[in-house]
Simulated scan of single mutants.
Amino acid sequence: MSLETGNRGKCERILERDPNVTIFLKPIAAPAALGLAGFAGSTFITSTYIAQWWGSANSPTIFFPFVAFWGGLGQFIAGLFGYAARDTLVTVIHVLWGSFWMSVGVLYLLTATGSLPPHPINVHFPELASWMVVLTFFTWSGAIAASARDLVLCAVLTFLAIGTTIACCLFAYGSGVGTGMKAAAYFWIISSILAWWRVTVYLIEEAFGKSSIVKFFPIVRTPAEKRRPLVVPGFGEPGVKRGMPGVV
């Protein structure tokens, strides 16, 4: 329909009537379930290796393809779907860490092909340390935001942030780097186990709903989260709603 300046009556009718706008929301599964699953798997494998529970110097070239796809690509996809779910926390955290694991996977691919020399994780490595600075700041921001949701998710990001903060020791020289990375690895291990627990809760809640079995998988939702309805208004998005699976 075209409007011409000479058709004053039509212009006035168009401007005065209420706009007919309809918003359709496409239901999707919680992206955080996939993101946390990818994070838990990749972080547990890598951190147990850094903690020297197993493996040899050549182990990363074998396990990092899985880490890059499951923990990297899987998380990255989950983070992008966080946009559709109107979940800023999921988007930022999982795109951030998904990008990290894919990037590390590329580094080990280049190392395996001989394009880059091998670089032990327990020595001075300022280039990787600069990544840890970015990861640290945004992960702490995510931990603060998660404190308004549930304590398990908050703990996942808090232990992850602590370990990543310690990992900034890669800027240093000497034996302290190896000690610091091993300490960071244990915080990452705890974070990965808690992430597995949170994913289990997503699966149990979807499978059994309000069944009493859910009580055996506590995540300690905050009072603020409990007060929210199943669908809550989107922040900064007038007229858009955000679905919150598991909230009753």
Rank of each mutant, 00 (worst) to 15 (best):
F171C: 01
P31R: 06
N7Y: 05
S175V: 14
R227C: 06
T222D: 00
A33P: 11
I219Y: 02
A57N: 10
A57Y: 05
A143W: 05
F81M: 10
G142M: 04
A32C: 05
W101T: 00
T164L: 10
I50T: 06
L25M: 12
V21N: 10
Q52I: 00
A78E: 11
R198Q: 10
S192D: 09
L73I: 13
G105P: 02
H124P: 02
A29L: 13
I121L: 03
F138Q: 06
L151Y: 08
L3P: 14
S211M: 09
W131T: 12
S175H: 02
W70Y: 10
A224E: 14
A148D: 05
E237Y: 09
F81H: 15
S211W: 12
F217Y: 15
G114C: 09
L89F: 06
T136Y: 02
I77P: 13
I62N: 03
G98W: 00
G35S: 03
R149K: 01
G71D: 03
T48M: 09
T48D: 04
S103D: 02
S99G: 15
A51K: 00
L194K: 05
I14V: 15
F63I: 01
W70L: 02
R221E: 13
F235G: 14
V231K: 15
C11I: 11
L203P: 00
T136M: 14
A84W: 07
A167N: 01
P229S: 01
L230Y: 12
L110M: 13
